[in-house]
Design a protein around this nucleic acid. Sequence first.
DNA 1: CATATGACACTAT
DNA 2: AATAGTGCCATAT
Length: 110
Amino acid sequence: MKIFTQKCYDYLTNYVPKGFVISYGDLAKSIGHKGAAQSVGTAMKTNPYAPKVPCHRVIKSDGSIGKYLYGQAEKIKLLKQEGVKIIGTKVDEKHILKLHTFDKNNRSLK
DNA sequence: CATATGACACTAT
DNA sequence: AATAGTGCCATAT
């Protein structure tokens, strides 16, 4: 059982491909720490493995960019380079990785 | 060991 | 729709 921070890096490097992003909250859930969204951010910050881990592919649940070690502008730049569309201040939904969630009728949401 | 902090999320205005 | 208030939780101090 790896520590939280380690799992974050592991998940990012192995499950978040170039051209896609995931929210802090969903990342937390994905590694089994539901509710620890803010902690994910803390982890990214305290362990600047810079380009080593694609921490620029983590955004807020409302689609907005969030912060970045080298500044939000840099984060946006990197994402664009990877082919992610930015609409105004938010990331295009098509590039956001979501958990397999369902609505009340048990139909998967897109 | 106890408190504070912050790359967040959710709800109610 | 946009903003403010409240809750969360792993780390840092």
